[in-house]
Simulated assay, not measured.
Amino acid sequence: MAGGKDSVIDQLLHHRTLRRWAAAARAAKDTDLRQLRRERGRARKLKHHLDTLIHVAESRLALPIVGNQAFPRPHDSDWGWRPELWCGPLASPGGSSVQSKTMLGHEVTLFHDCRHSELTLRQLRNTREADLAAFGLRMDVFRFDGSYLSLAIDLPEEASRDLRRKHLIRVETIVEREKPLEIFARLNIKNGPNTEQIVRELPLHEDEIMVEFDLAYTKLNEKRVERMWLDLIFEGPQMNQVILRDLTFSRRPRAEL
């Protein structure tokens, strides 16, 4: 029962289940293939529930608090959000020789045109006292033979709901890098057959790395807004390590004149 203590029977069932799966794992190399196929199916179903439990548990128990959506934002914001990669542990935290269109979680996708990928991506745990985000993203770039490298972050449906040209979209991040490079943020808004785009360079030399996108300078069709996403574009990334300690979004209406 949720919130209650395990009964003696629950504990006995738990230990019995552990012993059963431990024995199955030890015997797997010699198990009949038909039986092994059944065992694999059962294990996959069990793994799905275990992964969900672990994700939620680590989100609630770790510090900085995993799943935390709290961050400073303008007082008149009508929406704010931190992507899942910076909130909770991903089932697949990254990899090496990462290919284009590789996704980390459900919202972040890597794009590049390298013939030979020498890129690594890794979700890492933030432990600094100043960090509000529980996790960060580390990108190591070695030899780079491509012409572009970017991360695309899909914004949730709430970001586009009731979106108007009077809105300002704010993006804030914490960036660490081994060597100087330029990072550009491009906001994309799909509205009907058109996609409005606004580009800003991140002020990496400033203490507060923040950009705002003023939708008044677009030709946004407010009645046909479908979705939004942000591209982080890295210029000159070779032989560098970049860590995005945090990434947050907020939306607010521009002050009436």
Results as ranks from 00 to 15, higher is better:
residue 149 L to T: 01
residue 140 D to L: 10
residue 138 R to D: 08
residue 90 L to N: 06
residue 174 I to S: 13
residue 159 A to S: 14
residue 174 I to P: 03
residue 134 A to M: 05
residue 179 K to C: 03
residue 99 Q to D: 10
residue 95 G to N: 09
residue 124 L to H: 10
residue 197 Q to V: 13
residue 183 I to T: 09
residue 140 D to Y: 03
residue 114 C to I: 07
residue 114 C to N: 14
residue 142 F to P: 00
residue 147 S to E: 11
residue 170 R to L: 09
residue 190 K to N: 09
residue 168 L to K: 13
residue 199 V to T: 15
residue 166 K to P: 00
residue 141 V to L: 02
residue 113 D to I: 11
residue 86 W to Q: 01
residue 173 T to G: 08
residue 88 G to E: 13
residue 112 H to W: 08
residue 92 S to D: 06
residue 135 F to N: 12
residue 88 G to D: 07
residue 120 T to D: 08
residue 187 L to S: 02
residue 148 Y to R: 11
residue 107 E to D: 15
residue 126 N to S: 11
residue 178 E to D: 15
residue 115 R to L: 07
residue 121 L to R: 11
residue 118 E to M: 10
residue 90 L to Q: 13
residue 124 L to M: 08
residue 157 E to G: 02
residue 105 G to N: 03
residue 157 E to Q: 12
residue 197 Q to E: 14
residue 117 S to W: 05
residue 84 E to N: 11
residue 187 L to G: 04
residue 193 P to G: 09
residue 191 N to G: 01
residue 180 P to A: 08
residue 154 D to L: 14
residue 163 L to I: 12
residue 188 N to D: 03
residue 136 G to P: 01
residue 172 E to H: 06
residue 147 S to N: 14
residue 138 R to V: 03
residue 150 S to I: 00
residue 155 L to K: 04
residue 124 L to N: 01
residue 190 K to Q: 10
residue 146 G to A: 11
residue 88 G to L: 02
residue 94 G to F: 02
residue 126 N to K: 06
residue 97 S to L: 06
